[in-house]
Design a protein around this nucleic acid. Sequence first.
DNA 1: ACATTGCACGTAAGCGCTTTCAGCACGTCA
DNA 2: TGACGTGCTGAAAGCGCTTACGTGCAATGT
Lengths: 326, 326
Amino acid sequence: MATPRRRATIHDVAEHAGVSIGTVSRALNDRTGVHPDTRLRVLASAAALTYDPDKAARELSNRRAVDIALSVAHGYRRLTPFFGLFLQHLSEQLAVEGLQVREVASGDDGLPVRDADAFVLLDAHPDDPRIGHLARLGRAFVLVGHAHDVRCVAADDVAGGRIAAEHLLRLGHVDSVHLTADLHAQAFADRAHGFATAFEAAGAGQPTTIVADDASTLGGYRAMRAHLEGGTRPGAVFAATDELAIGCVTAAADLGMRVPSDLSVVGFDDLPELGARLTTVRQDIALLARETVTLLHEALAGAAVRAVRLPVTLVSRGTTAERRNR
Amino acid sequence: MATPRRRATIHDVAEHAGVSIGTVSRALNDRTGVHPDTRLRVLASAAALTYDPDKAARELSNRRAVDIALSVAHGYRRLTPFFGLFLQHLSEQLAVEGLQVREVASGDDGLPVRDADAFVLLDAHPDDPRIGHLARLGRAFVLVGHAHDVRCVAADDVAGGRIAAEHLLRLGHVDSVHLTADLHAQAFADRAHGFATAFEAAGAGQPTTIVADDASTLGGYRAMRAHLEGGTRPGAVFAATDELAIGCVTAAADLGMRVPSDLSVVGFDDLPELGARLTTVRQDIALLARETVTLLHEALAGAAVRAVRLPVTLVSRGTTAERRNR
DNA sequence: ACATTGCACGTAAGCGCTTTCAGCACGTCA
DNA sequence: TGACGTGCTGAAAGCGCTTACGTGCAATGT
């Protein structure tokens, strides 16, 4: 049975290596002024004892115990795969700096419940009450998404819509439709705008927009299926989300259409598993996380508010093809 | 602009209240030996300074810096609303004890990447490689779900299936079907088993089982729709999940059937938003979180392995009704 | 009257770590 | 030879907190 192992401390390592704790600390943290031989000896001892520095002690000593609270609009209940991934990258990114997400919660009123040093707001509409709340309290926060006059970061959604349009246009799909959900959400509005603008600029007219009940795969499926069954048979669809796109693909398949020969579909996000085969507008979630952390530091330092837009790229996979004559 | 506020320390509070730091600590932690008046004064000072004790320092002092890693099978990518809620309760529960989930991650190989003191495994099949891995390492862990010979906790799925059956039977639905996904998952297998057993015990025969491609709302929708379109029109369906149930309800609606008059549906889990109107088998997620923490402590203490089953209850809402003659 | 209790509180040690500072053993330059 | 770096290391302070331990004081007992 697992003996309740006592964690090795820096003292144990020091003793084992025959040096002082100061030297161990320096060696382990790549500080200068340690003889190479000594460093090696310390490293070996640390490995031998499976030494794992105590986070709390390290934080305390570093006096960089920054509490970072992550606030998701509806708790985890509506956590999308996208935000799930983001979260993972965020905590990895913070771990690099020895920081960490301390708590993940928001009260029933939607307001962050904890008095942290800094907040990351997910899933916020521009008029989200949390923004005013935090601003009023003078707390550091960064919004993942977009709003005016607040520190925020998000993909360049307009550009995303545009490159989706250009891709489709290049393939000859002048009769594309746009499948989205809740245009009240800034990201969706921007993507729709970028898409429509590019179409008009190309003289292809205003594309039809289908609004699903929600941004789930089911939402996308039903909206698309209804549209397809309505008689109109567009050659391509740009879905505002990979999940919506999956719904599209599934709906098309259920109606006997083939993707991409009968219907091209391009998604948005590039979620690993979900869209492994999907042509989609990729946003770099790792980069998003890194930028979030940067902004977090700026917020803590009291720097000027700025909004950052992250580039997106189109990754062409199996769900788009040239328009066939019909 | 938010001045980079310096956090108040226990010394500030002590000075403000005109007492020593020891007294502040005792007052704030409900220790005995503090005069009621003094306690009040300290509390007031703490509030005035918005004092928020430094977690790191507290942990260090308490030497209960227990690293608890939460391991989700596929990262957050497949985090279901159910596990999302569970996570929330778990971190709340741990917060009560001054503990916290330190990291939430699993490597690309699916194995937990961090060397924590204890692990919470979500979403694990009984033959999940993580179980053997952790056991081999002699690490403390608890599995949320079921498997043989490991410390685990889960709802009483068999009973859940049974009470769903009894509810439906009581309403006269002898022609119920069971909608599930991936019977390889222990929970789903158990629910199906409980359901079928109760039906047979009542002399109602073996209920039809429909297996959806996945446990999403879309999966439930498509499976149910296909079944319904196939001609058979069951009077009721027991879905292994609230999400599947939502899919059912939606499919029925899309086919012009009315719930519950044409089709009764009962779900499983009782997720707040999702199933607000759903008749469902409720599991107490908060309790699940509490039990998880209890088992975690047992694991850390090296107690004997035990598996716990949590009771479930049927909550009857708007999606079930008595069988009509047809 | 004094010794004894018990309560409320202050003092200080210590949790495991980082980092400054001083010291020591060299070598270098005049 | 002595004054001076230079490179490496140990000692010790301190991060913010909890918690023995000790002390002063009033209340109690004799």
